[in-house]
Design a binder for these strands. Structure first.
Lengths: 149, 149
DNA sequence: TACCAATAGTTAGTGTGACAAATATATAAA
DNA sequence: TTTATATATTTGTCACACTAACTATTGGTA
C-alpha cells in the first residue's frame, strides 16, 4: 500500500458519508418532516434520555457545544424542545421534548428507519460487523490525540 | 438486524468521517499549511489535471458547483490558483495552479500523506479492500436515485 | 471572605454543503 | 433570424463544524 492511497480512502469515506446524509436529508424534505437529519438525531436522543444538559447531549451525539446550541435554538423555535433551568445549577439547562416534540418523534421514527435502510442494501450481516469494526478502529486511532500532546 | 441498527451505522459513519476531517484539519492548522483540507483536495486534483473547467473539477472532487466556486475564490485570493478564460467558450474558465500553487503542492504532499496515514493504523490490507468495497456499495445504493423518480 | 480555576453555555468568524434561482453564453430548432 | 433549450458559473439562503473568545456561575482554597 503506497502512501498515496491513504488520502484516497479518506476521500472515499468523506464522499460516502456526505452521500448518506444528503440522501436522508432529501427524503426528510420530500416527506415534509420539518426537521433536518441532525435535528432528528438530537430529538431522538432526547426522547431516550430526558432532562439532559447540553453538555451531556453534546457528548451523546458527538457534536461540539456551539453546534448543539444552534440546533437546540432551532428546535425550540419549532416548539419541539424546551430549555428548563436546572434547579441547582443556574449555568445549565435541562432539555426535554415538548408534547409536540414527543409526537413528532413517534410519527417520524418508522419512516426514518425505512430511509436509513436504503443505504445498507446488498450488504451482508458480516459486512456490517466488519464495517463497524473498521470505523471504530479509525475513530480510536485519531481520538485522544489531543491528550498526548 | 433490527431496523433500529441502520440509523446507528449511519451515525457511526458520519461520526468517523467528521473525526477524520477534523484530525486532518487540526494538523493542517498546526503545521501552518495555509489551506484547508478541502482546498488541498482541489489543489491536488489541479496539480494532476491542468486546465480543467470548474464543472470538470467539481465532478472529480464530488462537490457541487456553488461550493467549488467558493473554494476556487479563496484559492485565487491566496494566489494558488488562477482562472483563465476559455479560448472558445466565454462561459467557462480553465483553472490552473500558479507557480506558488505548484510549489505549495510539492511541499505539502509528503506531510499530508503522513497525516492521512494516522487514521489507518491497526488495519490490515484486507481491511482496506473490504472497507472500500462496502463504502462503494453504500454510495451506489444511494446514487442515481434521482434518475429513477 | 476573597480569590481563582473549572464548568455551562453563548456569540462571532470562517469554511463547507445543499439547494434554488439568476446571469451569461452557447447551441439547436423553427 | 428568432426562439428555445442547454450549459457554465455565480449569488443567496440556511444549516452544520470548528475555533476562539466571552459571560455567568460554581466550587475549592488561601
Amino acid at each position: 500500500m503506497t502512501q498515496e492511497q491513504y488520502s484516497k480512502y479518506s476521500f472515499l469515506l468523506d464522499r460516502t458519508a456526505r452521500k448518506v446524509k444528503q440522501y436522508a436529508q432529501q427524503q426528510f424534505k420530500s416527506g415534509d418532516f420539518d426537521v433536518t437529519v441532525d435535528q432528528w438525531l438530537v430529538m431522538k436522543n432526547l426522547s431516550e434520555n430526558d432532562a439532559l444538559s447540553q453538555t451531556e447531549l453534546a457528548n451523546l451525539v458527538f457534536k461540539d457545544h456551539p453546534t448543539l446550541t444552534r440546533i437546540i435554538d432551532l428546535l425550540c423555535k419549532k416548539g419541539y424542545v424546551e430549555r428548563v433551568p436546572h434547579p441547582q445549577d443556574r449555568r445549565s439547562f435541562q432539555l426535554h421534548l415538548t408534547e409536540t416534540g414527543v409526537s413528532k418523534v413517534v410519527s417520524l421514527r418508522p419512516e426514518i428507519h425505512n430511509i436509513r435502510e436504503k443505504a445498507w442494501e446488498n450488504l451482508s450481516p458480516n459486512d456490517f460487523d466488519e464495517f463497524k469494526r473498521i470505523l471504530d478502529t479509525i475513530y480510536q486511532n485519531l481520538n485522544g490525540e489531543s491528550l498526548e500532546q
